[in-house]
Design a protein around this nucleic acid. Sequence first.
DNA 1: GCCCTGACTGCTA
DNA 2: TTAGCAGCCAGGG
Length: 106
Amino acid sequence: MAGAADSFFASVYRAVRAIPPGRVATYGQLARWLGVPRGARAVGWALRALSPDRSARVPWHRVVGAGGRIAQRAGAGPELQRRKLKAEGVRFRRGRVDLARHGVAP
DNA sequence: GCCCTGACTGCTA
DNA sequence: TTAGCAGCCAGGG
């Protein structure tokens, strides 16, 4: 995907945009796509640095923590993300996303 | 070039 | 199930 020419951030945004509607991916999964299986934090850092204008363009709500849990991010509450996912048809199990059903890589 | 922070992850109690 | 600890990666001051 995005070569080293682009910043790590660009790679993250690109990976997030590659997530098809109605599906979700975990930070670790995205990190792995970028070639950094242990760069989950780096992915979170990239999304945190995501500008408001960019957030409207990147489906950040499709990015969840391990096990499909909603990460405790700053700003918008977990309800917003959960609400957006529900709008796409994503089902929740005890407050967690069913990765076995909506996961990008089951 | 060094130190700190952070939307994470996995294991153990 | 929830809570706490340690480790890895990247960016900013």
